[in-house]
Amino acid sequence: MKPTKTIHIALGSNKGNKLQYLQSAIDAIFVHIGAVKKISKVYKTPAFGFEGDDFYNACISVVTEFKPKKVLKELQAIEVELGRKSKTSKGYESREIDLDILFFEDEIIEEKTLILPHPQLQNRKFVLQPLLDVAKDFKHPILNKSIETLLAECNDSSVIEHVNIWLKNPKKSYTFNNYNYIAIEGNIGAGKTSLSNKISSDFNAKLILERFADNPFLPKFYKEPERYAFTLEMSFLADRYQQISDDLSQLDLFKDFMVSDYDVNKSLVFSKVTLPEDEFRLYRKLFYQVYKDIAKPDLYVYLYQNTERLQANIKKRGRNYEKDIKDDYLDKINSGYLEFLKSQPEMNVKIIDVSEKDFVKNRADYLWLLSEINDASVGSKQ
């Protein structure tokens, strides 16, 4: 998963349906740039530097994987998409929408096409007032002053008036937090950890990640599967029980729901593939004894990828002990999952084929996948 940064963007409009332009811009930013974390109140302010209608102004904080110049390019494209025309004069003028990057976390950039932090934000009350709503304690990386301090010291005497209208966060259209616990499952290399991380970050979920990387038997199993299969599966049985029981029992009042990159039933799927029949029967008895009281996920999402794509993903992440995984093994795991899911009619399952999607690198694919999951969420509640 790419590293993310929190950025702050100012929005303004003084032409046409100003509120709709602000909302459309926020919706487009969510689609093209990243998850919208916070939205300020809307403020009415007089035109600054020219004669014109009053502006509606707002600020938002956004989490993005993009670099500053990519964000700038996307914002300019959104402005054009919403009808903003090229300037007809050198000074300020009315516009349908105006989008400016104020902060890109604490980065300092001085280039011809982009200066960060925005060089004039400390002088403009119509920027500082809404920015205070979403970044009160954030410190200007050059001036080393909080937004609250900058607003108190600002010499701009413009009258700022709160408009009793609220902009909507686009992520609220997704209903994941209808659930307490969502499990993301899939074959080796399907992208379940990446997706769980992204959902956790974008939708304020408690993240539960499998601790497979710490298992000392996993590299040994890939070298000598027959010798280490039972030992490996038993170690996973114990570790998954300990982790999932601890994590599910510890409520986090500051999170909306839980998302995990595995479900404990994967132990049955993998053990059925890796163990001889007699050992599997013994293992299954132990499994049901251990997990009989463990909470089941409210929504189980299975990410299906074809074997060719799985191998490409496995190669890309470069784990040495996975380099010799055979196609036949991945095929058996996929079949094992699908067979298991068919035998669980009481589970709320959504199987999604992501073989032709790259939801890690392509935000459009990621949003498509969120919509597919969201459809399952909505449908199950009807």
Rank of each mutant, 00 (worst) to 15 (best):
S146E: 01
V354G: 10
Q23K: 10
E105T: 00
I208D: 05
I208P: 06
I60Q: 07
G318L: 01
E110V: 02
T307P: 02
E148N: 06
D53Q: 14
L116S: 04
Y43M: 04
R227E: 15
Q289L: 12
E372M: 08
K67E: 02
P216I: 07
I208V: 10
D324G: 00
S267F: 03
I60T: 05
Y321H: 11
V62H: 06
L330K: 06
H140S: 04
Y283Q: 03
M1I: 02
A213M: 11
N313W: 02
E148R: 08
F254K: 14
R281C: 10
E81D: 15
R281H: 08
S40K: 00
R363Y: 03
K223M: 05
F50I: 10
K361S: 14
F254S: 15
I26H: 07
A10E: 04
L303F: 03
N177S: 13
N17S: 09
F212T: 12
H118V: 05
L330I: 06
K112E: 15
L11E: 05
S158C: 10
A183K: 08
F103N: 02
F221W: 13
L72Q: 03
L248E: 07
K125G: 06
N215T: 06
F254L: 14
M347Q: 15
D256A: 09
G91S: 13
K220T: 03
P219Q: 05
H32Y: 09
G12H: 02
D156Y: 09
G91D: 11
L253M: 11
L369E: 09
N180A: 13
I142P: 03
C59S: 00
K361E: 14
M234H: 00
K332T: 08
S158H: 02
F30V: 06
L369Q: 12
K112F: 11
H162M: 10
E185Y: 07
F257G: 11
I352C: 02
K85M: 09
N169C: 13
L367A: 11
L11N: 08
V269S: 00
E372N: 10
S158N: 13
Y181C: 09
N204G: 04
A47E: 11
Y56M: 12
G52R: 12
